[in-house]
Design a protein around this nucleic acid. Structure first.
Lengths: 121, 121
DNA sequence: CTCATTACTTACCTTTTGTATAGTACTTAC
DNA sequence: GTAAGTACTATACAAAAGGTAAGTAATGAG
């Protein structure tokens, strides 16, 4: 819950910026939801399918927070079986470099630390 | 706790990579600690001062996890009042693009969403 | 003996996140 | 009348993340 709220106090400007970003993007699901939406406008259930493991409750909650921060746009289509579409905004698209960097580093990390360690599962 | 563990299952390769990254970097503190260490080798208390608000308990816990993932190097100097130095590794430095992207986006987000909304405090 | 110092650890508590299950609203299909 | 379909909301409860406060080891200062 922090659309325009919670002003971090911090001497180091860069750390402050990262804190601000983290505050909006934190948690297990937000980035994943954003990636799904960045890949095209989707409905509630579609996002739920793409982001494996997320429950309705969480998806609903996260979507609400993302909407408050202008990171998704919610459009209700007044049809019968309810239709709600979620789409990316310009602000979502400005996240592209973050997502890309995370993606690249994720691959790298898997190769270096995770890859090759096949015990456990 | 996931050095080389917890292999995410996921159809979408990119989502998987981001999940992997998130798994290691998740939480309120890890990135901040990493930024502090990236700015130079530091001792326990020094990191604690730079990362405002973190408690000893959290710092100790996070440092341990980061070490397991080769994201910090821990060096104990056998002196009296204990001296332990934490430094960046090549793997930490490979995170640079992630940190940069987050920093840039954090500034952007503050201007767009946080900045100008001065009610609430 | 007591205090301060350093890098932690331990115990306890609150908040956040997550799971499971059921229910609402409304219309079409059977 | 009942089931299916859609986007949620409600409730209860378990687990994880995070916060606060205090304790530990070892030694030099007072």
């Amino acid at each position: 819950m922090s659309a325009g709220g919670d002003h971090n106090k911090c001497e180091n400007k860069d750390l402050l910026a990262v804190r601000d970003a983290l505050e909006v993007l934190h948690g297990k699901w937000k980035l994943q939801i954003l990636i799904a939406v960045l890949n095209g406008t989707k409905r509630f259930k579609e996002i739920g399918k793409e982001v494996e493991g997320i429950s309705d409750r969480m998806l609903s909650k996260e979507l609400k927070e993302l909407e408050m921060n202008e990171l998704v746009r919610r459009k209700v289509i007044d049809a019968f079986p309810p239709v709600v579409e979620y789409s990316a905004t310009p602000h979502t698209r400005s996240l592209h470099p973050v997502v890309e960097a995370l993606k690249v580093w994720g691959y790298l990390h898997r190769k270096k630390i995770i890859g090759g360690v096949e015990d456990r599962g």
